[in-house]
Design a binder for these strands. Structure first.
Ligand SMILES: [Mn+2]
Ligand SMILES: [Mn+2]
Ligand SMILES: [Zn+2]
Ligand SMILES: [Zn+2]
Lengths: 153, 153
DNA sequence: GTTATTATTGATAATTATATTCAATATCGG
DNA sequence: CCGATATTGAATATAATTATCAATAATAAC
């Protein structure tokens, strides 16, 4: 099995566990949305609208509200992350592994998103939090500006 | 003159300059909102609704749309910053000085906001941007979690 | 397998923050 | 003061998200 397929299976188990733990139910729609999401959106940051328009092509009967609710379910179960890049629309991306963590550079011109991670920053943040006795649940870091294509450098 | 009054005068000049540069007009309402904002909201992060409710007490005739538009004008002119703490409401805070820059720790329980700054993080960010030939216009950093009061440590 | 219970679906409507419209009014250069 | 133009404030529109609810699907109990 490829590493990609392996990770997808792990995500499926995480979701199934969450569903049974919360006494929810597995459904055709959730399976369909799961496959679409983890097959086509690794490393992407898709809005609900975009995702809905694409999944509708192969599954015309699926409802908009169901897509909304299911992506939210993915977030709650820990297999997806919800992002806000400041344009008023929620975006979702598959979480790649348990402890993976990254941040975003967003081009205000073309909209492209670049990911980065930096352990030194993470360390600073933890120190700052500790100093203020702040119990960190999450943090987000975004750089907004022009990507190399758009700034013409 | 106190340093606080001094800075307020500088902000007023910045706004006046912006208004004349963009061929806008000075109005009673803008003056009233300016005074309210810089007298009562230094170091605060106020929503438009909150701000409107408070200013209405002394100036009942002022309109909601005017408050919205004026706070946006303050942002455009560079004397106020717009923040998004993830609760779906825009927040505004007075900019304290030209090159001042800070970030936020937000308690998910009590809603209190704590500010911090860290030059090492800023340096890392600039390096990362340079490495990716990314032309930084802005960046935001937020820590979400429980403050010391709410985590009971 | 049948039945009972409970969650889900999908169409629609409600909500919420923000943006726009527009007629009346205020500002400002000349 | 006059005329041109920007602003105001009430109302309306927009856009993303969330809630409602009757029909249906999934699981549990028997
Ligand atoms: Mn990402
Ligand atoms: Mn602040
Ligand atoms: Zn770009
Ligand atoms: Zn707190």
């Amino acid at each position: 099995m490829t590493p990609v397929a392996q990770r997808k299976m792990e995500r499926r188990k995480t979701l199934k566990d969450y569903i049974s733990r919360m006494q929810l139910k597995s459904t055709k729609q959730r399976d369909v949305i799961f496959d679409e999401f983890f097959n086509n959106y690794m490393g992407k940051h898709v809005t609900v609208e975009e995702f809905y328009e694409n999944i509708k092509k192969n599954h015309p009967k699926i409802g908009f509200a169901t897509v909304y609710r299911t992506l939210k379910l993915f977030r709650e179960s820990g297999i997806a992350a919800e992002r806000d890049f400041g344009d008023g629309k929620a975006r979702y991306e598959p979480i790649r592994s348990e402890n993976e963590h990254h941040h975003h550079m967003i081009c205000t011109n073309c909209g492209n998103v670049y990911e980065f991670a930096n352990s030194q920053i993470e360390l600073c943040l933890n120190q700052i939090a500790k100093l203020n006795q702040f119990d960190v649940k999450d943090h987000k870091l975004q750089i907004h500006g022009l990507c190399s294509s758009c700034s013409g450098s």
